[in-house]
């Protein structure tokens, strides 16, 4: 990394829900125009980490810097301004049921940037085309689309405002392997075209290998390994080895409760 500050830097971030510690002094940096994928099992704190960066959850302690600016102490108004830099693809797509597909894609332009609807619709249709969807899809309701198409629309919405940072929350969950690969390729293409910084969380290793420049592994609320994508197969970390090979035996013990 160069001397410029990282795009996103988390240090010592703690978050708990009641007695359950979810993030336990988490440290992580994401460089400008870098694609970092955080892998980890269910319930290890991946989504909570993303929500803390976005300000949807407030950590108990620690620092979260975006472009060298502390975000944890920001007021709601300042955070809204900061969020204009971000785009996000949600795990379940989170498309607005009450709006047409093109209105979903144009939402950030119309509401966030106060762009006229006609102009925003043109951009939305262009973004839909960029993810392989025709203009006729724009007039449909989200409920009329398949899961894969919904993910594409969610991706088009995430890139519509040409954000500097894009978050991908489990982008391939629930998709068949071919559609998952299509989404992975679209993510790589869109991120490259925009020159954006990407932070993804997933437990799909095929997805991680395809979209990551660097991979980090989170376990029990901490980053336990971070390195280049090509180094993950010989990380020398038993937790990482167990996870990427999907073995039941190893240092990671799944919490299985007898019924």
């Amino acid at each position: 990394m160069t001397g410029s500050p990282p795009k996103i830097a988390l240090s010592g971030v703690n978050k708990r829900f009641g007695d359950k510690v979810v993030l336990d002094g988490l440290d992580l940096t994401v460089g400008k125009s870098e694609s970092l994928v955080v892998i980890g099992g269910s319930g290890t704190g991946k989504s909570v980490m993303l929500k803390c960066i976005l300000g949807l959850l407030r950590p108990e302690s620690g620092s979260i810097m975006v472009d060298g600016e502390e975000t944890v102490s920001k007021t709601r108004g300042d955070r809204e301004a900061m969020l204009r830099k971000f785009g996000m693809l949600f795990q379940g797509s989170a498309l607005f049921d009450s709006l047409k597909v093109w209105e979903n894609v144009a939402f950030g332009l119309i509401q966030g940037r106060h762009m006229p609807r006609v102009q925003a619709k043109e951009i939305a249709l262009a973004k839909l085309a960029a993810v392989g969807l025709g203009p006729e899809v724009g007039e449909l309701s989200p409920s009329e689309l398949s899961g894969g198409m919904q993910k594409r629309v969610a991706l088009a919405r995430a890139i519509a405002t040409e954000p500097e940072v894009i978050f991908f929350d489990e982008p391939t969950t629930g998709l068949d392997p071919i559609m998952a690969d299509v989404i992975n390729e679209l993510i790589v293409k869109c991120v490259k075209d925009l020159g954006a910084t990407a932070l993804s969380i997933t437990h799909d290793m095929a997805s991680a290998r395809k979209i990551a420049d660097r991979i980090a592994m989170i376990y029990q609320g901490k980053i336990i390994w971070c390195g280049k994508r090509e180094d993950i197969d010989h990380s020398g970390n038993a937790y990482v080895d167990q996870f990427i090979n999907g073995r039941a035996e190893g240092p990671i013990r799944m919490q299985v409760r007898a019924l």
Binding site: K51, D97, G108, Q111
Partner: peptide
Amino acid sequence: EIGTMRVTEQIDALTTLATN
């Protein structure tokens, strides 16, 4: 309606799209 938006993360999506 709002409850469904909450549990399907649509309210979080509003926030990330800089809309209160």
